[in-house]
């Protein structure tokens, strides 16, 4: 079963003459344990898609099934619960809390969830160490490089043991080298930890780490490519031409 199943998903912002169709009847199925990139020109709807799948926004119509449950039909508290338990979010600007150190930032989701400080921090340290940040745990965000801050954000996303990681331009604010590092960490969340990663990016270099790339344009999927197999060829039109000769 697909872990994420999107059916006829449409999102319209505004109404009347000002209505903008950000997503237009999207259908999409994502298998568990895959690294999927979403690409497309700005304004194509890729962030909207990520937000709807993450339950950060509600669709105008259609459904988003996470492990077979339609999140569009969930009440707010159910949705919050699902986001906390099943999903981890990574953003372009890291969204770390400036006055908290790396360990406290990474531990935050557990602390908000009522887990005791000590236990939460121990879990945070585990994920910081996995991200080669064990020796930076007492540094505040302004004492860390962009790449390090994003790795703290990944530790924070992973601490509640989510099945799905949603990343919105995770390397958009980083130099090439740090971007590669972050993409490599995301890759290992899939390859070594069996998580499902859905990542929006405009950077081909970063998208190349994924198993599959979905291309959006004007709110529609225009192409969907598996990195390991051959592209289907448009044979029908050629056949018609051959027959007409």
């Amino acid at each position: 079963m697909a872990i994420i199943e999107v059916k006829d998903l449409t999102k319209i912002y505004g109404n009347g003459d000002n209505a903008v169709r950000a997503l237009d009847s999207i259908n999409l199925s994502i298998e568990e344990g895959k690294f999927v990139a979403v690409m497309g020109p700005s304004g194509c709807g890729k962030s909207t898609l990520l937000h709807l799948i993450g339950g950060l926004d509600r669709p105008t119509s259609g459904s988003v099934m996470i492990e077979g449950k339609d999140i569009a039909k969930m009440k707010d508290d159910q949705l919050t619960e699902l986001r906390r338990r099943k999903m981890g979010f990574i953003f372009q600007f890291f969204n770390l809390i400036p006055v908290l150190n790396a360990a406290e930032n990474a531990a935050l989701p557990l602390i908000l969830d009522g887990v005791k400080q000590e236990r939460a921090k121990a879990r945070a340290m585990e994920w910081l160490q996995k991200n080669q940040l064990g020796d930076r745990s007492t540094h505040r965000p302004d004492e860390l490089s962009g790449g390090q801050q994003q790795r703290v954000a990944i530790a924070r996303a992973m601490i509640s043991n989510p099945l799905i990681i949603l990343a919105d331009e995770p390397t958009g604010n980083l130099d090439t080298r740090s971007g590669d590092e972050i993409a490599s960490v995301l890759r290992s969340l899939v390859s070594d930890w069996g998580r499902t990663v859905l990542m929006v990016t405009h950077d081909p270099r970063i998208a190349a780490y994924a198993d599959r790339i979905i291309f959006l344009k004007d709110g529609k999927i225009v192409d969907d490519t598996l990195m390991s197999s051959d592209a289907p060829e448009n044979a029908r039109r050629l056949k018609e031409k051959v027959e007409s000769l």
Binding site: P204, R205, A207, A208, Y209, A210, I213, F215, V222, D223, T225, M227, S228, A231, E233
Partner: peptide, 12 residues
């Protein structure tokens, strides 16, 4: 699209 898919596969 076909060309892009091929380039992405190489890149991957």
């Amino acid at each position: 699209q076909i060309q892009r898919n091929g380039l992405y596969r190489d890149l991957h």
